[in-house]
Write a protein that binds this DNA or RNA. Structure first.
Lengths: 181, 181
DNA sequence: GCTTAAATGGACAACGTGTCCGCTTAGTGA
DNA sequence: TCACTAAGCGGACACGTTGTCCATTTAAGC
């Protein structure tokens, strides 16, 4: 069990970090900033979260879990029951919405290779893989990550902010990928 | 014109950086390491290359230019003359070979968002876009980056090293993407 | 209340970065 | 060949961030 002061500080840290990440690019937020904003010492911060990434992962956790829940047990086409291609399209659309809302957090947690080491990526991977198998796609091994690659937060932010594309255009492009099934 | 000592130092820096990047993960190579290995002072290093990324870009430059040349004026299916889908497949295969040889350099230069800011990405983008247009694909805007996303070096290294996939499996998966044309 | 073990937080050392400026050297013209 | 000049050089320096360590505090059980 977690001590009361520990729980209180955990909440403070997450709240402060959420505000800071929203205010400026995540790599400009130092651990010290977060500790100060949370009214907590460096040692306390490092005890739970050894780096920025782990904080962002914690912040994302609930949003991702909600989508994971809907993928497993929600209504079609996101949940079970629809044809694989439709489910994949629905997954893409849902992920775009998640990116739209929390891309800054994702960028904070998943810089480059780190992305693949999170539990969430493993989940998306298993989901898409099962869709490929259900569709009878041969040798889904490499195709899974190929299909997940466009969901990298860096790609999304580039399309959205630098290129000025709309959410619907991006979803439309992703939907066309479902033809490979 | 460039002074003789300046040219000599530039060469030394690039050579030393290439060795260091090959030996260990690029983000573990400090600017100081490079300066020392090149037998050059910090100031000299920073004069030309303000950060690791710019060094890696310089190192990659010639390899990328060679492929760019082949895309523009080489034989089909890489160069002009073949159907767009075949040219895209050939492009994918060529890029995989480039990644196989120089992924560590690319990782050094193109961490996360930086990738999209290089001239090379602009070139790949223009190329794929022209293939989409030639194939009569409507609204190629977002699809271009979607199709380039699986070529992110982080994705490649993950597939190759972490998952243990072979080059041919990856090429095969990418080739399936050309169905969207 | 009293005890104990977990939790706290700030001080500290180590490291990487980027800049600054006095010194050196290549190139040019006499 | 020499002297002049401007570009190039390089190391010292100041700054900011990181991650650790340990004396002190505090929550929870008896």
């Amino acid at each position: 069990m977690e001590r009361a002061d520990a729980a209180r500080n955990r909440a403070r840290i997450l709240e402060a970090a959420a505000e800071l990440f929203a205010a400026r690019p995540p790599h400009e937020v130092t651990m010290d900033d977060i500790a100060k904003a949370a009214g907590v010492g460096r040692g306390t911060l490092y005890r739970r979260y050894p780096d920025r990434a782990s904080i962002a992962v914690a912040l994302l956790d609930e949003h991702e879990r909600e989508l994971q829940e809907r993928l497993l047990r929600g209504d079609p086409p996101l949940g079970p029951g629809a044809p694989p291609a439709e489910r994949l399209a629905a997954f893409y659309a849902a992920m775009v919405r998640l990116l739209e809302d929390h891309a800054h957090l994702v960028l904070g947690s998943e810089v480059g290779r780190t992305r693949f080491e999170t539990g969430a990526y493993g989940f998306w991977r298993a989901h898409v893989r099962s869709l490929l198998v259900a569709a009878g796609t041969p040798a889904p091994g490499a195709l899974v990550d190929t299909l997940l690659a466009p969901l990298a937060p860096e790609v999304y932010v580039y399309q959205r902010s630098d290129l000025g594309l709309g959410m619907d255009e991006i979803i439309e492009a992703l939907t066309r990928l479902t033809r490979v099934l």
